[in-house]
Nucleic acid binder design. Structure first.
Lengths: 134, 134
DNA sequence: CTGTATCCAAACCGATACTG
DNA sequence: CAGTATCGGTTTGGATACAG
């Protein structure tokens, strides 16, 4: 052998499958938003649709279903005259928030660097791209 | 209008684009692992390959390149006889760790529930699926 | 050893239309 | 109002082979 492999100094083995479990939930394009909006209290299907302009009913339904199955939110049918359904985060679902906040925090710094490029002239994104930034 | 839309009680607007900036980096299938292994100190290309059995050189190269461009890691060519390249997290890259840890933490609970199913008989994954769980 | 090129399968997402 | 069905475009990731 030409070069020797150094022992990895990481304190613990990387929990890939564990990370994947969470990423499957918050890794979607809309899931962080759904969780965020739900963190303010229970919310109906149509309300969530209005909260997130551009989301198709299919996506919302799919994500909601996945999240319910994973046990991070609860679906409750309200017996009103026009049927309405409320979605609310469970305790488990609320635990996703710190992760999302952590992501948003570092994402903020990432984005700042992305736009400023730290003095480098290399920025192909002129700052202010039309994402769904409220 | 039949039903009135309740005002969203979420404390702040969900920073979707900001989240996306971070998710683009840690949302990949291998990126969390790369960051984790790099958190133990600088590491070479081949070492990372051994750390993560199953990753193709293309993926590793692609992710490494993206992360370098985003400024979360630095690439350094060591002038040794067989050429070797070391990758190391930058300060900015180290800031990704808290987010990954937060994800892993809630992912752990998610996975526990996923396997136990809380007394329900509904689990189509018999626990112990062959993911890259070290 | 350190990558890059090509091909290919699967997942994700969006738009539209339609049902209960 | 609250979804489901279907179609298609785009992206992502894996396998393999090859190059500097």
């Amino acid at each position: 052998m030409a070069l020797k492999i150094r022992k990895n100094r990481s304190s613990a083995p990387p929990p890939k499958c564990v990370v994947a479990s969470c990423m499957a939930l918050i890794g979607g394009a809309w899931t962080p938003n759904i969780i965020w909006y739900l963190s303010g209290g229970p919310r109906r299907f149509g309300e969530l649709r209005i909260d997130m302009p551009g989301i198709s009913p299919k996506m919302l339904s799919t994500r909601l279903r996945e999240m319910e199955k994973a046990g991070v939110l609860r679906r409750e049918v309200m017996p009103t005259s026009p049927p309405s359904v409320e979605y609310a985060l469970t305790d488990l679902g609320a635990e996703l928030l710190p992760a999302i906040v952590a992501i948003a925090e570092v994402g903020h710094k990432l984005k700042a660097r992305e736009n400023a490029a730290c003095g480098q002239g290399e920025n192909d994104r002129p700052a202010g791209q039309p994402l769904a930034a409220e």
